[in-house]
């Protein structure tokens, strides 16, 4: 069963069409990575799917109970401690005070935040820790669907890997589905069940490809071979590394 269905979605910004005729679905328990060159409208599509942006056309059907979102900018409130930042999501989700305490402790443990980290303000934490708190915030409300909007782009390679492992572990543990936006094909191949490719100019999904195995069992060698293979031979990946730095989106 599909938990998210996007059919014929389109969007325009200041009179310029940036998305057109998008059909994409995510099945129960599946992580779909959406890849495409910078500025092709991936993030906008995620925001449309999550209901943050109103699409100009098309229909979005959501069959999940509760979603969470992890952004590229961790979007932590600078005036609140890590604990309060996580608690903010729990409060918005309408959890009772007693449950919030327990949930906070459990999720902090899960993403390896110490009790000391929890009392700190974002200014006292590194970029990696910010993203860890943002992940904890997203997981705390026990979503069954997570939108990842290029969450690890700003992190260095080692840290990014560790965060990816955290996502793989979490998604395999809980029965989570998700849409993972990224322009990094390696990242997509590492943690998604299926990789969908968005057209350079946002006019439709070019197609989707399935890397071997599951994210949990996939080895680094398999990821590497698969990425090398598709970049060389698969025509729909031809423009994946195109960059137009003048384009804003």
């Amino acid at each position: 069963m599909n938990v998210l269905d996007i059919s014929d979605a389109g969007h325009a910004y200041l009179g310029r069409t940036i998305l057109e005729g998008i059909d994409l679905s995510v099945a129960q328990g599946e992580i779909v990575a959406l890849v495409g060159p910078s500025g092709c409208g991936k993030s906008t599509l995620a925001h449309i799917a999550a209901g943050l942006t109103e699409p100009r056309s098309g229909r979005i059907t959501r069959h999940y109970a509760r979603h969470a979102m992890i952004f590229q900018d961790p979007a932590l409130m600078p005036w609140a401690t890590s604990a309060s930042n996580i608690d903010y999501a729990l409060r918005l989700a309408g959890e009772k005070r007693r449950d919030r305490q327990a949930r906070l402790a459990a999720v902090a443990d899960h993403v390896a935040l110490t009790s000391e980290d929890l009392t700190k303000y974002p200014v006292e934490l590194s970029g990696g820790m910010h993203q860890r708190v943002a992940i904890a915030r997203a997981l705390s409300i026990q979503p069954d669907f997570i939108y990842f909007d290029e969450p690890f782009t700003a992190l260095d390679v080692a840290l990014r890997r560790r965060m990816q492992d955290l996502v793989i572990k979490t998604c395999a543990d809980g029965n989570l589905s998700g849409l993972f936006i990224t322009h990094d094909l390696n990242e997509a191949a590492r943690l998604a069940h299926r990789v969908a490719i968005l057209d350079t100019r946002g006019s439709g999904i070019l197609g989707d490809r399935t890397p071997p195995g599951t994210p949990r069992t996939r080895t680094d060698a398999q990821v590497f071979d698969w990425v090398q293979g598709v970049v060389q031979d698969d025509p729909i990946f031809r423009h994946i590394h195109d960059v137009d730095e003048r384009q804003i989106a």
Binding site: H47, A50, L52, H67, A68, M69, F71, D73, A75, M77, Y88, A89, L92, A93, R137, I141, Y147
Partner: peptide, 13 residues
């Protein structure tokens, strides 16, 4: 910070 508005909207505010 417009990101904070997006974030809080994404979490249902």
């Amino acid at each position: 910070d417009p990101m904070l508005d997006k974030m809080s909207e994404a979490f249902g505010a």
